[in-house]
């Protein structure tokens, strides 16, 4: 043996984390660019959902003299076209995919690395956003040409919207990861995931703008995380929220991100103990 083993020196913690996010996001972009055509077809498929909602609500609005509950045809168009961007932004590492991660042995590999597992998913999907947003632009232009959205945001609304779509990303990441922990106890978590997604559809503004829901549903939505991942980011750009509501909305996103992170941390500790007990 020629030399005594010594570890390599390390970079600083914060600098390394920033470096990791930059590197992982670049890796994600390069990885997604390998499948440009597949990405585009995926995007087109995803756009079908809001277009159906848009056509239905536009038809209803026209039958009611051009508006439903004060929302005009042009505002519906604006809502659902912005929806497509928000939806792309809040796609995260979904709860059911934790099962794949465990089954394929990827989790064991991730656990051997000195980094909180949330960072991998946050950084990878954050990089992915840059690809999908680039692909989304021509789709948004096409939809705008067909449906004529009524959209006139202020500078503040644009700034809040940019922050809010990332806020939506973080809130959704935390809660999907927390729900994903269920995979450590059962391989049949689909029923719970479906219930969660159905609740999200109704209470987030994904299916219907929350303004069209009964008052009690709107109140309920204010106290749950879902609205801050769909309805709020969309409303921040297309609605006429006061400055106070905009800032409170961003505050709510921070709060739900922290709550989600705390819930995830508790669930993760229990989950990993179970994983380590039954086999990796």
């Amino acid at each position: 043996m020629s030399s005594q083993a010594t570890p390599l020196p390390e970079e600083g913690r914060l600098r390394s984390l920033v470096d990791f996010y930059g590197t992982m996001m670049r890796t994600s972009v390069v990885s997604q660019l390998q499948y440009r055509v597949a990405q585009y077809f995926y995007m087109l498929g995803m756009v079908a959902e809001p277009v159906i909602y848009l056509v239905v609500w536009t038809t209803i609005a026209r039958q009611h003299g051009g508006a439903v509950n004060g929302i005009t045809v042009g505002q519906f168009a604006a809502y659902y076209i912005v929806w497509t961007l928000v939806r792309n932004m809040n796609i995260v590492f979904g709860a059911p995919f934790w099962e794949w991660r465990i089954r394929e042995g990827r989790l064991a590999g991730d656990l051997l690395r000195p980094l909180n597992i949330l960072h991998y998913d946050l950084a990878f999907f954050a990089g992915w956003k840059f690809v999908v947003v680039a692909l989304w632009i021509p789709i948004a232009v096409g939809l705008s040409a067909v449906f004529h959205p009524d959209l006139h945001p202020s500078a503040l609304e644009i700034v809040v919207f940019v922050a809010a779509i990332w806020g939506a990303y973080f809130v959704r990441s935390m809660f999907q990861a927390t729900i994903g922990m269920l995979n450590f106890w059962t391989t049949r978590g689909a029923a719970v995931f479906d219930l969660y997604m159905a609740t999200e559809m109704l209470l987030s503004g994904r299916l219907v703008p929350l303004k069209l829901m009964p008052g009690w549903v709107q109140t309920l939505a204010d106290f749950l995380p879902f609205k801050w991942t769909f309805g709020f980011p969309i409303e921040s750009l297309v609605g006429s929220l006061s400055t106070r509501s905009l800032l409170l909305g961003l505050g709510a996103q921070v709060m739900w991100t922290v709550i989600g992170y705390v819930l995830f941390t508790f669930a993760w500790r229990a989950a990993i103990k179970r994983f380590s007990a039954v086999g990796a």
């Binding site: 390599l8 020196p9 390390e10 970079e11 600083g12 913690r13 390394s16 470096d19 990791f20 930059g22 590197t23 992982m24 890796t27 390069v30 990885s31 390998q34 499948y35 690395r113 000195p114 980094l115």
Partner: peptide
């Protein structure tokens, strides 16, 4: 390793994960 990318990309990622100079 990242399945779709050259190994050099994964190495670069490991550099960041392990905080290497």
């Amino acid at each position: 390793l990242q399945w779709d990318l050259p190994a050099l990309d994964s190495f670069e990622l490991n550099r960041a994960i392990y905080r290497l100079r």
